[in-house]
């Protein structure tokens, strides 16, 4: 089983978007995929067409003391995903995160995965935002591929080293960086990419995800860009990115 965690280097870098599209694209390659949303904004589900008013999800389910796996959904396209769920108050969120405060449930995620009856070549894709709570740290620790999503701005390039440190406390996993929102007509984007390539080497994806309006429009119509605009550049970028990530899971390291 392959486990990917996807973390945005800054807010709005596009981690949730990437998680949703990787799930679809890897699924299209013929693998079984399951996407988890660990972000309280609970927006992963929107890419899969889930109704905004439905509040179900992992957090409410666990808080209600029900089995976690009953919170999973399947999109009309056959993608399995686990929404975070809508929590009305901050206190509920804290209550949910507190479920995983050490030493409680320290291996909860691994145990969950162990109970799944899925083939070995299945992919688990997790949207794991900063900051790393105990739950999120546990997800990242269980991931064999850890992806950081960078925006083409100064913050990304100055932060890339720090992100690398926080994403890789051990050496069992490979670390990858993806540049999202790239616009080749802006000089800064060229420069940031150049710097990142020098800094990160092979860990930086050779494919950038372009700043393509199709992506925003796709989300607005609650679709992935593969359905909304299959011949867009973003669809092509994301497909190739999925191939790059799945082709040789252990080869590239920072």
């Amino acid at each position: 089983m392959n486990v990917i965690s996807i973390t945005g280097a800054s807010g709005g870098a596009g981690a949730t978007m990437l998680a949703a599209h990787l799930a679809v694209s890897i699924g299209q390659q013929g693998h079984r995929t399951l996407a988890f949303d660990f972000s309280p904004f609970n927006t992963l589900r929107l890419h899969f067409g889930m109704d905004w008013n439905v509040t179900d999800g992992l957090a409410p389910q666990l808080l209600a003391g029900k089995p976690w796996n009953e919170a999973a959904w399947r999109s009309p396209d056959g993608i399995d995903f686990m929404p975070y769920g809508t929590l009305e108050h901050d206190s509920a969120r804290q209550q949910f995160e507190a479920l995983f405060d050490p030493p409680r449930a320290a291996r909860w995620f691994s145990d969950c995965l162990a109970t799944l009856d899925i083939p070995d070549d299945a992919w688990i894709i997790n949207d794991v935002p900063f900051p790393f709570t105990p739950l999120r740290a546990q997800i990242v620790a269980a991931s064999t591929i850890r992806v950081a999503v960078l925006a083409p701005d100064a913050m990304s390039s100055s932060n890339a080293g720090r992100i690398a440190d926080s994403l890789r406390p051990d050496t069992n996993a490979s670390l990858r960086f993806v540049l999202n929102g790239y616009d080749a007509s802006r000089d800064l984007d060229h420069d940031v990419r150049y710097l990142l390539r020098a800094q990160l080497g092979n860990a930086l994806a050779p494919v950038v995800v372009h700043r393509d309006e199709s992506l925003r429009e796709a989300l607005a119509s609650k679709q992935t860009v593969f359905d909304y605009a299959p011949s867009s550049q973003a669809a092509s970028d994301l497909t190739r990115l999925a191939f790059w990530l799945t082709a040789a899971p252990q080869s590239a390291t920072a």
Binding site: H210, D212, E213, S214, E217, P230, S231, S232, Q233, S236
Partner: peptide, 25 residues
């Protein structure tokens, strides 16, 4: 495209004056 969408295409011919594009859609 003027509205910010990007379409994947292939060039058919190119010169210093212009080009012919075959858009995927």
């Amino acid at each position: 495209l003027p509205d910010g969408r990007l379409v994947r295409c292939t060039t058919e011919d190119v010169s210093m004056g212009g080009a012919a594009l075959l858009p995927a859609t």
